[in-house]
Amino acid sequence: MIAIKSTSAATFKYLTLILGVFFALAPLVVVLFASFKTSQEYHNTNSLTPPADWFNFDNYRTAFVKGNMLKGFKNTAIIMLVSLVGNMLIGTMIAYVLQRFTFKARGAIMAAFLFAALIPGVTTQVIVFKIVHALGLFNTMGSAITLYMGTDIIGIYIFIQFMDNISTQLDESAMLDGASYFTIFSRIIFPLLAPAIVTMVIIKGIGIYNDFYIPFLYMPDPDLRTISTSLFAFKGPFGSHWETICAAVMLIIVPTVIAFLALQKYIYNGFTQGAVK
């Protein structure tokens, strides 16, 4: 009886997973197809017609060379590294303060971060630009790094979520050994936040990696182009080379997938970890 029930539950589980996979991937078929088509082929065949030559990597080559992707990857890597390190430090620090200590402004700070997430960015863009400019950051990587570094409510909440499950007894026993709050944070709390940090690195990192608005507006210098802005080398007012853009999108996603696969095991390992008590 139980066996039957659990098999049907398992069937249902895998069925939904496969359905999820199907719906996640199906819309992307056109991108994959287009990336292997020649320009004429793209213009003259249906988007759902498979490419004539599955080994036509011309678009990939064009995207990589003409899109100056190597430089883009380099700039993006620098920006991501600095802003993610900063973001994670800032986020865990403020979360530590908010979770471990009770003080007067605590609720206000929490609310300030929450409401900041609700600000419609459309009309504040002009003022943000003026501030960035006044700080002398315009047309430097500093502009993007600073803008990406600011932590947000999601980050704070997920860090707090994990700290909730890190017993304060750990802190107390460390304090008995004479550890300072800073040592407690850097030696005990921060390492135990690894799954949360990985989650946030993935979420934040993908946002930064794919953003083209901030790089275009705040650092238009061609030497500072990022991987995401390189896509626009194939998109102009008179026409877009979608076959090349699709190849570029496929190229751009490769590092993301690799990074994701490398990182994601840290997330669910949390389930079996014994350290968090």
Binding site: A24, N210, F212, F232, I253, T256, F260
Partner: peptide, 9 residues
């Protein structure tokens, strides 16, 4: 995967 795709596409 869909969240990883660049919004240009």
């Amino acid at each position: 995967f869909p969240s990883m795709i660049n919004s240009v596409a």
